[in-house]
Write a protein that binds this DNA or RNA. Structure first.
Length: 853
DNA sequence: CCGCTGGAAGCACCA
DNA sequence: TGTGGTGCTTCCAGC
């Protein structure tokens, strides 16, 4: 594919491209897409782009950043039948340079040769789904010959033979390996075997060709990103037309390449997309992130929208995949959407919820429980709101007449930076009861629901079209590079994003995350869950009465305050008194216990949790003990908060003290907070990229938020996301400095090489500040996802406990407390997600540094 | 018939 | 090594 001389890919793959990287499709499992050199693009002109480009997995010279398998696509001319391409993709005639896309190193999600989770994770590479790291090579093409050959068909006409060959060779041929491409769904289903073998080697049965006891048990056909073959032919080509049609190979390849080229990965070739859901995901292939700059000689349109690309740019005939169109295309998606840009921030990048006049807010929060459905189940409906109805999201401050697109994906709800949840995907709900149109796109292994935000609706959307799909842990944990574990990792957040094009060509990206949602049936029934707490902080002498609201409280529920050392060990633990008289299943009144040290000089953050018994604990909540002369901060009670009015003060908490599961925050910014214009992520031409900075900021915060705490409130207009932990500012943005949270020590480590280490290859130029502010959001997994290090996965048993103590320290806080460490092995399963991963994160950060150096 | 729900069985893992 | 608890996943029945 080439583009008009004056056309450019918004995608930052320009200069680094080297013709020498060109490989013929037939000989190499790599994708090469030839494009004309975008004249307007230079690495110096937009370093963010470079970073992005790097994040796409290619080296500075267009060479793969990693020794990874690549998919090389020749747009046309390489295949027997090029007429279609030529006619349908006229731009493909001007080939000036070649881009080689680096695909995920390793085998991707489900490595047939890797039957044990241990081996799977041990060889992890530098990517995680939807992360900017892997943005480019996150396609998770499993095109390694020894792996799922199924990727091949996506890009190669030779795929079919390859497939069969690999099939027989793959230990995991199975459904996973079955030639779905040539089958109809029915036949496909019939050939599926039962479940995939256990990641733990024998944990599960794996009866090929259908175990007798199982009726159709797809090997996670649908989703199992990576695993399957099904995942490859994701380009929405009907099964029966897939194989025989060479053009489709070619076309698919083009689409795949383009998808892969898109910065943010819209590149997931269907991996991770359940068959079921993929049926509605025709848009995947169409959701190209190509952006042609105005003035392109071949198009009067400034952009290629989904539709027109799918229908006219590519020879794809809609009827070919019409069967995937379960729902008629909403008119909204039939016209170009201005936001479309491949340079949009990766899903794991932390974005603010407001910028300038814009503010993205979740007006109605989802219920704290929503039982997700498995692929093998029917849908369990859309996520609902607490008071009935559905969540509502609104963009404030937008006065243009141009509709926007609201993006929704399922994010994590743990203590780390918000990122796409590996084990859950948003699921599109359709039907009579759904009033909101939506469609799906894939973004680096993460399904993203796109919902129109219309001016006539006051830029307000009722989210009644989004359910939550649960992926099998065994499927995901086998995915290469996946560090999270699924067990007990059942809380998610709905993450909303909107990208607003500015007159100056920039794009402002905002993000808002919902309160945590518990998605497991069992947990939802048994585990206590704290939705709100009436106080964020209190005196070291204790005695304050704190009201908690939530679910599954019991008369004998205990509330335990703990302080953890850096390695995660508890250094202090105290049970709070619970007022049993005021007990309700949804509320508790507790008396804050005195802190162990009455003479602290700066705030100390501790945690507490509700305990209903062994293994039935809530998530950790945070509480900050304040020095004697610091006024107590209490949260703003909700109007509907029915607990006793224990809070005398009604004062908005500083954002630094806000916590994830606390829906009740004052909409106003604290008096001490400056205008919350903390700069959204902005894209080309002059991209504003926020990234963590090693520079500690001068926020007046009292408590020190965990840097990884990205609660919705943190991202709310009144509070700055701790994710925005640092900035490199131009003079014009100095006023925003105070809006940035102090950078905890731990984060500062990663900040040294944020997108650089992660997204930029060695030798790349660091992002250069623009004339305006340059804020670079960190890919959260730079903290949360160790990769490429051969590190063992975060196993529950891992004694590694890293901790939060740096985070417990305010910038002005005293040095680490010298305390004895209390061993509490039983806590492991409670904390490993938090701590082990953090430990790995730190290791990973160092490794990134080394790699960069 | 299909989508949605609630409940629970069966299995695997772990203490 | 056996056993019970726990969590995950699938299945079923009802609306």
């Amino acid at each position: 594919i080439d583009f008009p001389p004056n056309a450019s890919l918004s995608l930052p793959l320009s200069s680094p491209c080297h013709p020498i990287q060109y490989h013929s499709l037939q000989t190499s499992p790599s994708i090469s897409v030839s494009i004309s050199q975008p004249p307007s693009f230079s690495p110096h002109e937009d370093m963010a782009s470079v970073a992005y480009y790097h994040s796409s997995g290619s080296g500075p010279n267009g060479a793969p950043a990693l020794e990874s398998p690549r998919i090389e696509i020749t747009a046309y001319g390489q295949f027997p039948d090029t007429e279609v391409e030529e006619s349908s993709v006229p731009v493909a005639k001007r080939v000036n340079s070649i881009v080689t896309l680096t695909l995920p190193s390793g085998e991707g999600y489900r490595d047939p040769t890797c039957l044990s989770p241990a081996s799977s994770v041990s060889s992890r590479s530098c990517h995680s789904e939807a992360s900017s790291y892997e943005s480019g090579y996150s396609c998770n093409y499993d095109n390694s010959p020894q792996n799922s050959p199924w990727q091949s068909p996506c890009v190669s006409p030779k795929g079919s033979s390859l497939m069969s060959g690999a099939l027989s060779a793959s230990p995991r041929h199975s459904p996973t390996g079955s030639p779905r491409a040539s089958m109809t769904d029915d036949s496909w289903a019939g050939s599926r075997s039962s479940r995939p073998s256990s990641p733990c080697g024998g944990k599960r049965k794996c009866s090929f060709n259908g175990g007798a006891s199982h009726k159709f048990r797809p090997c996670s056909p649908n989703l199992s990103p990576g695993l399957s073959p099904h995942t490859s032919p994701r380009l929405s080509v009907t099964d029966d037309t897939w194989l025989p049609n060479t053009n489709q190979y070619t076309n698919s390849a083009i689409v795949a390449a383009i998808n892969a080229l898109s910065t943010d990965g819209m590149s997931d070739l269907g991996e991770g997309i359940p068959l079921k859901t993929r049926k509605t995901s025709v848009d995947h292939s169409a959701s190209l992130s190509l952006k042609i700059e105005p003035g392109g000689e071949d198009t009067g349109s400034a952009e290629l929208c989904h539709e027109d690309y799918a229908t006219s740019r590519l020879p794809f005939k809609k009827e070919n995949y019409a069967s995937f169109l379960d729902v008629p295309q909403h008119p909204f998606w039939s016209k170009p959407k201005p936001y479309i840009s491949p340079s949009l921030p990766a899903l794991d990048w932390q974005l603010p919820s407001s910028s300038g006049p814009y503010s993205l807010q979740i007006e109605v929060q989802p219920k704290s429980h929503h039982r997700a459905h498995y692929e093998t189940e029917g849908s369990r409906g859309a996520v609902k709101a607490l008071a009935g109805g559905h969540p509502v999201v609104q963009l404030h401050g937008y006065v243009e007449s141009e509709p926007l697109t609201l993006q929704l994906f399922i994010g994590t709800a743990d203590d780390r930076l918000l990122r796409p949840h590996a084990f859950y995907q948003v699921h599109r709900i359709t039907g009579k009861t759904v009033s909101t149109p939506s469609h799906e796109v894939m973004q680096a292994n993460t399904k993203v629901l796109e919902i129109p935000l219309l001016p006539e609706s006051n830029m307000r959307a009722i989210i009644d079209c989004a359910g939550i799909l649960k992926l099998r842990n065994s499927d995901i944990e086998l995915r290469k590079g996946e560090t999270d574990i699924g067990r007990k990792n059942t809380r998610v957040r709905m993450v909303f994003r909107v990208h607003i094009n500015q007159p100056n060509g920039r794009t402002v990206s905002l993000q808002a995350a919902s309160n945590p949602i518990e998605c497991s049936q069992r947990s939802a029934q048994e585990l206590p869950l704290v939705d709100r707490q009436s106080m964020e902080s209190g005196s070291t002498s204790g005695g304050d009465r704190m009201a908690l609201s939530g679910h599954n409280f019991q008369p004998d529920s205990k509330v335990v305050f703990v302080e953890k050392a850096q390695d995660g060990h508890h250094i202090w633990e105290m049970e709070a008194k619970v007022d049993k008289d005021s007990f309700k299943p949804t509320s508790l009144l507790v008396e804050v216990p005195p802190y162990r040290n009455q003479r602290i000089s700066s705030p100390v953050q501790v945690n507490f949790y509700i305990c209903n018994g062994k293994r039935k604990r809530s998530q950790y909540q945070r509480f900050t003990y304040l020095p004697p002369n610091v006024p107590t901060i209490k949260t703003e009670p909700h109007d509907d908060y029915d607990l006793p009015p224990v809070c005398a003060q009604r004062r908005p908490p500083p954002p630094s003290l806000t916590l994830p599961p606390k829906p009740f925050y004052a909409p106003q910014a604290p008096p001490t907070m400056p205008t919350p214009d903390h700069r959204a992520y902005a894209t080309s031409p002059q991209r504003l990229v926020t990234r963590p900075s090693p520079l500690p900021c001068t926020s007046p915060s009292r408590g020190n938020p965990k840097v990884h705490d990205l609660s919705p409130t943190h991202l709310s207009p009144q509070g700055l996301s701790p994710g925005i932990t640092g900035i490199s500012l131009g003079p014009s943005t100095a006023p925003h400095v105070s809006a940035i949270q102090p950078t905890p020590a731990r984060y500062q480590q990663s900040v040294l090489y944020p997108p650089t280490g992660a997204s930029s290859p060695p030798g790349s130029h660091p992002p250069t500040p623009n004339s305006t502010a340059e804020l670079v959001f960190a890919p959260s997994h730079s903290l949360a996802r160790p990769a490429g290090t051969g590190q063992a996965p975060a196993l529950p048993k891992a004694p590694a406990r890293s901790g939060s103590s740096p985070l417990l320290q305010d910038e002005g806080a005293p040095a680490l407390l010298s305390v004895s460490i209390k061993q509490e092995p039983q806590e492991l399963d409670q904390i490993y997600l938090d701590d082990v991963n953090m430990e790995l994160n730190n290791i990973y950060i160092y490794i990134c540094v080394c790699v960069c150096v």
